[in-house]
């Protein structure tokens, strides 16, 4: 496989990553959010493998496999269990209407393009084109955390930020050192586990998964005291 072709493929995957970030923002149902999140994980693994192949850095294969197992399978499965046992798979209930969110998302993408492009031009890596996209994905995932009410979607947004950062790392420097990679993966796993435990606890305490409701409940308690 020539470098040219693999660059083409990486560009294509970058475009798909951006598309998935938009799709995550646009979803209404919890389960489809989860599906898109899993797809993002798999896509990330494929990208890592491709970069590993074309750059000859074999350590990246390990992180590709790890990404696939962790972000493509394990985390979505855990979140799916949480969603099922908490019965929150219905609506995502965005704070803003969809059109507005999409508008902001487009503007954010434009902004990151505008900011990153001058830096990317100086880079010599074949993945340099995807840097702007990786940045945009980070920002879009943050946007997802901002615009959603349910705590679970916020967690998915958080994990998506991590995904995008991983993508940026592949794009900018052909991946981080393996030790760091494993460390981050472990952190994410632990974070997800803790979140999972918290969800049950939150549900137990507040009887709701909505951040607003939690706030209201806390304020209410303060008033009572």
């Amino acid at each position: 496989m020539s470098t040219f072709l693999s660059q083409q493929l990486i560009d294509g995957l970058a475009a798909l990553t951006l598309l998935i970030s938009f799709a995550l923002l646009a979803q209404h149902r919890m389960l489809s959010v989860l599906h898109w999140f899993a797809a993002q994980g798999v896509l990330l693994a494929v990208t890592a493998a491709l970069v590993a192949y074309s750059s000859g850095e074999h350590e990246l294969y390990i992180s590709a496999i790890m990404t696939f197992l962790l972000k493509g399978l394990l985390l979505p499965w855990m979140l799916w269990r949480v969603i099922r046992s908490l019965h929150v798979h219905r609506e995502v209930e965005p704070l803003m209407n969809n059109g507005m969110t999409m508008m902001i998302a487009v503007v954010v993408t434009l902004f990151s393009f505008h900011v990153i492009q001058p830096i990317a031009v100086t880079s010599e890596l074949m993945t340099r084109n995807s840097m702007a996209i990786a940045t945009a994905c980070v920002l879009l995932s943050m946007l997802m955390m901002i615009t959603r009410k349910k705590a679970i979607t916020q967690v998915i947004g958080f994990l998506a930020v991590e995904n995008s950062l991983f993508f940026a790392a592949i794009g900018a420097t052909n991946g981080m050192p393996l030790v760091v990679e494993i460390g981050i993966a472990f952190d994410v796993l632990v974070a997800a586990l803790i979140f999972g435990l918290f969800f049950f606890q939150i549900r137990h305490t507040f009887d709701s998964m909505e951040v607003d409701a939690m706030n209201a409940s806390l304020i209410h308690k303060d008033d009572e005291e």
Binding site: D11, A14, A15, A26, T109, F113, V121, S130
Partner: peptide, 22 residues
Amino acid sequence: LGTAFVLSFLGLMIHYMLEVQL
């Protein structure tokens, strides 16, 4: 239709991001 618009606009941005060497 909005999805179609966002898709084509993404296409446009990606055209500049990935395919045009500035």
